[in-house]
Amino acid sequence: MDWSVVVLLALAGMAGGIINAVAGGATLITFPAMLAAGMPAVTANASNAVAIAPGHLIAALADREKLPAFDAAFFVSIMLCIGGGMTGALILLALPDRLFILPVPALIGFATLVFACAPRISRWTAQRRGTAQPSRRAASATLAAASVYGGFFGAGLGIILTAVLSIADPVDIRRVKVLKNLLATCVSLAAIAIFILRDAVQWPETLVMLAGALLGGYAGGFLVRILPAEYVRRCVIVAGAAMSIIYAYRYWL
């Protein structure tokens, strides 16, 4: 690993940490950076998952007042997320690189679209408050499906989980955010365990990006007070759209 790759991954990790702290959407920056460093697509995805994993847990612990009670419903949600994350990771590792790279532009594009529509999704879920709630079976199936996606790719998972949880629990958005971060952590850790056991992580590059992400997350805690989140969101959306086009040209044309 030469110094240009070290600098690329460290800067991408720092940018990702700041972006997650201010607006979310770090994977749209960090995953393409792993690809640009020359990693195979599956390895890049697995390594990226490890590098940005601490973000959700740190965010959850930052609002400890709203941590949920460890009751039966929370336990079931954790089990669904762990099972879904492991399933998604196993599906990813079962695919050869030549097959995984085909949907990469679409996955980045989908995550960018979800991220761009996040305010509308939030408004929609707010409008759903007070209306008929989904059945427990439907809510569990949706959570499991989101967790499988999170273990497979992960970008946009936080937004998807927020939408799902806001419908099921419309009372307290802070509690929803904390629960979202805890469940996303469960998905990430389950997927990471599979990636590590299957030796799918490229550690030197991962540790460089992880160090950058931790530093960026710490800096983001201060920058969130002065950086307009909407401007950061727009930059992430533009970057995600550009990456979608670039990788569509590379892999599809």
Score class of each variant (00 low, 15 high):
Glu205Pro: 08
Glu205Lys: 14
Glu205Leu: 08
Glu205Val: 06
Glu205Arg: 15
Glu205Asp: 13
Glu205Ile: 02
Thr206Trp: 14
Leu207Ser: 05
Leu207Phe: 08
Leu207Thr: 02
Leu207His: 05
Val208Met: 13
Val208Ala: 11
Val208Phe: 04
Val208Gly: 10
Val208Asn: 13
Met209Val: 13
Met209Leu: 09
Leu210Arg: 13
Leu210Val: 08
Leu210Pro: 07
Leu210Gly: 10
Leu210Ser: 15
Leu210His: 03
Leu210Tyr: 11
Ala211Met: 01
Ala211Leu: 05
Ala211Arg: 01
Gly212Asp: 08
Gly212Lys: 08
Gly212Gln: 04
Ala213Gly: 15
Ala213Asn: 12
Ala213Cys: 14
Ala213Met: 05
Ala213His: 15
Ala213Ser: 11
Ala213Val: 12
Leu214Arg: 08
Leu214Ile: 12
Leu214Glu: 08
Leu214Asp: 12
Leu215Phe: 02
Leu215Asn: 01
Leu215Arg: 00
Leu215Trp: 02
Gly216Tyr: 04
Gly216Glu: 09
Gly216Ser: 07
Gly216Cys: 11
Gly216Met: 11
Gly216Phe: 10
Gly216Ala: 03
Gly217Leu: 00
Gly217Trp: 00
Gly217Phe: 00
Gly217Thr: 01
Tyr218Gly: 05
Tyr218Glu: 01
Tyr218Met: 05
Ala219Glu: 07
Ala219Met: 03
Ala219Pro: 07
Gly220Met: 02
Gly220Ser: 07
Gly220Leu: 01
Gly220Gln: 02
Gly221Lys: 05
Gly221Pro: 07
Gly221Thr: 01
Gly221Glu: 02
Gly221Asp: 02
Leu223Lys: 12
Leu223Arg: 13
Leu223Tyr: 15
Leu223Phe: 10
Val224Gly: 11
Val224Met: 10
Arg225Gln: 11
Arg225His: 14
Arg225Cys: 12
Arg225Trp: 03
Arg225Asn: 14
Ile226Ser: 07
Ile226Tyr: 09
Ile226Gln: 09
Ile226Cys: 09
Ile226Val: 13
Ile226Asp: 08
Leu227Val: 04
Leu227Ile: 05
Leu227Phe: 11
Pro228Asn: 14
Pro228Ser: 07
Ala229Leu: 04
Ala229Thr: 01
Ala229Asp: 12
Ala229Trp: 02
Glu230Ser: 12
Glu230Gly: 11
Glu230Cys: 12
Glu230Phe: 08
Glu230Asn: 11
Glu230Ala: 15
Tyr231Cys: 02
Tyr231Phe: 10
Tyr231Ala: 15
Tyr231Met: 03
Tyr231Glu: 02
Val232Phe: 04
Val232Tyr: 03
Arg233Ala: 12
Arg233Cys: 09
Arg233Pro: 04
Arg233Asn: 07
Arg233Tyr: 11
Arg233His: 07
Arg234Trp: 14
Arg234Ala: 14
Arg234Thr: 06
Arg234Gln: 09
Arg234Ile: 11
Arg234Met: 04
Arg234Glu: 06
Cys235Glu: 03
Cys235Ser: 11
